[in-house]
């Protein structure tokens, strides 16, 4: 009995040390590491993650190949940045008119704990119909964030709740999955829309 509890403590101690090491790795070298300024996302063809869209379909980076893509990270309990970004994107899509149909537009949650498939479905319903909401397991979300060279962090709030810090830039990829550029948080429409057009024309220019 005694021996077992010693073993138990030993295992617990190892567990704590292991977790500390993992936490250290996460912050220094892992996905939690601060990204060098200008770190480029991988091409979509080199990313590897599997998520579920707001209609319950299995999706991943391969889902996005074939059409240009607008992608960004957020969470539905976000009162300011995320509805602003979703509303801005909706506005840009309106400006693109019929061309908006040629785009993949994905909102990937960094808060899978609260953002279930149902929560995502309810939320994206209020914005432009082209916008898809993606969620999944903690691990798969982390892999997606890593592929985009983005970051996120859970932050406790005074009222015992939590909020998420996250990369607020909007990522643009061409139809071949190559990263084109980012649109900064709340960048005006007159800068954003030409960037999207550029992502849409990228592979056309090359094919010509």
């Amino acid at each position: 009995m005694r021996r077992r509890s010693f073993l138990g403590y030993g295992a617990a101690a190892f567990g704590v040390i292991g977790l500390t090491l993992i936490a250290g790795w996460w912050r220094v070298d892992g996905p939690g590491a601060p990204q060098a300024v200008g770190a480029r996302p991988l091409p979509l063809t080199e990313m590897d993650f599997s998520l579920t869209d707001h209609e319950g379909r299995t999706v991943g980076p391969e889902t996005l190949i074939g059409s240009p893509t607008i992608a960004f990270f957020g969470f539905t309990h976000c009162p300011d940045v995320c509805p602003t970004t979703l509303a801005d994107i909706s506005d840009w899509l309106d400006a693109l008119g019929g061309d908006a149909e040629k785009l993949n537009v994905v909102f990937i949650t960094v808060d899978p704990e609260r953002d279930t498939v149902e929560a995502m479905a309810e939320y994206v319903d209020y914005f432009h119909p082209a916008i898809r909401g993606w969620t999944g397991t903690e691990r798969q979300i982390a892999r997606a964030v890593e592929g985009f060279r983005a970051t996120y962090e859970k932050v406790p709030t005074d009222n015992g709740d939590y909020t998420m810090n996250h990369t607020a830039s909007v990522f643009l990829f061409d139809a071949l999955g190559r990263f084109v550029t980012t649109i900064d948080y709340h960048e005006p429409r007159e800068f954003a829309v030409p960037k999207i057009r550029r992502a849409m024309n990228e592979e056309k220019a090359e094919g010509a």
Binding site: P34, V37, D80, V81, A150, N165, D184
Partner: peptide, 15 residues
């Protein structure tokens, strides 16, 4: 609250 975005494009909110 103030939303601030750092040079890596990461947004955070604080009172």
């Amino acid at each position: 609250h103030l939303t601030s975005t750092n040079e890596q494009g990461v947004s955070s909110m604080s009172p």
